[in-house]
Amino acid sequence: MVLTSRGAATRRRIVTGAAALFRERGVAQVSLDDIRAATATSKSQLFHYFPGGRSELLLAVAEHEAEQVLADQQPLLGDLTDWRKWQAWRERIIKIYDEQRAGCPLSALTAHLSQADPAAAQKIVIRMNERWQAHLATGVRALSDSGEIDPATDPDQTAATIMTAIVGGATLLQATDSMTYLELALTQALNSLRR
C-alpha cells in the first residue's frame, strides 16, 4: 500500500499507540476498540491501514518494537570502535532497561510472537537479531583491529554471546524486576571479551 505523508503519519500513530498500550497492559488485554480510542482512530481508518485486522496490526507493532530495540541503542551501537565506547554503550543498555522495566520493547516484541502470525513474527525477530549482531560484530572487529583484544576473537560468536547476555538478563528482569541479572551477564560478557 502506497501512503501519502498524512496516511503514513496516521498509520505510525496507530502503531505507536498500540505499542504503548501493549507494553502497559499486555497484548491479550488490549482490544481494537482500546487502540481506536487511544489513537483517536475510526474503525474504517483502522481497517484501511490494517486490512488483516489485529494480526496485521500486531506484526506492524512487532516491526516497530524491533526497530525501537535498535534505535534506543544508537548512536552508540553504531560506533563501538574502542573500549571506552563499548563501556558507554554498556551503560546505555543498563539505563535503557532500568528505565523501561516492564515496558521494554524487546519483551513486548516477544509477547507479540504468540499473538501474531508466528512465521512472520519470527522473521521480524531474526532480522532484528541479525542487524543487532552485525553492529556488535563490527565493534568486536574494531577492537581486534586496534589491538585492544585478542585478534583471534571470533566477532560473530562474541556478538551472539553479548546479545544472549542482554536478552537473558532482560527476560529475568521481566520475571523478577531485578536489574542484577542483566548487569552481571552483560558485564561478564564484556569482561570475557578483554581476556
Rank of each mutant, 00 (worst) to 15 (best):
Q115R: 13
D145L: 11
L46Y: 09
S31M: 05
H112D: 10
A37S: 09
R54T: 12
L77S: 01
A88Q: 11
A159L: 01
A20H: 05
Q29I: 01
I126N: 12
Q73D: 03
V30Y: 08
A60G: 10
T41Y: 02
N129A: 05
Q68S: 15
P151N: 13
K95T: 12
A19R: 06
I35K: 04
D79M: 04
R54M: 14
I162K: 01
A152K: 12
K43G: 10
L80D: 02
E63C: 11
D79R: 07
T81C: 12
P51Y: 11
F50W: 03
V27N: 07
W89N: 03
T158Y: 03
G139K: 03
A38M: 01
Q74D: 09
L136E: 02
V125H: 01
E130N: 11
K85H: 09
Q68Y: 06
S114D: 09
R101T: 04
V125G: 00
A20K: 10
T39W: 08
F22M: 13
D117F: 00
G53Q: 11
V140D: 08
L109P: 06
W132V: 00
H48Y: 14
L59I: 08
A119N: 05
L57M: 10
V125M: 13
H64C: 10
T161H: 13
L80W: 03
E63D: 15
L80Y: 04
I162C: 05
A40Q: 13
R23I: 06
K95M: 12
Y49E: 04
S146R: 10
R90G: 02
L77Q: 00
V27D: 07
R127I: 03
E56L: 05
D156V: 14
Q133D: 12
Y49V: 06
V61Y: 09
W83H: 08
R131G: 12
E148W: 09
E65T: 04
K43C: 09
L32F: 01
W132H: 13
A71D: 12
A40E: 13
I124G: 07
A121H: 01
L32P: 00
T81G: 11
R92E: 11
I149N: 00
I149R: 02
E63F: 02
A19N: 08
V61S: 07
Q68L: 15
T39V: 13
P51A: 15
R90L: 08
Q68G: 02
A152G: 12
A111S: 14
R141F: 02
T110H: 14
A142N: 08
S146F: 06
L77M: 05
L59R: 04
A152Y: 10
A66S: 15
Y97D: 08
A159S: 05
M128V: 01
E130P: 00
L136F: 04
P118Y: 03
L46V: 12
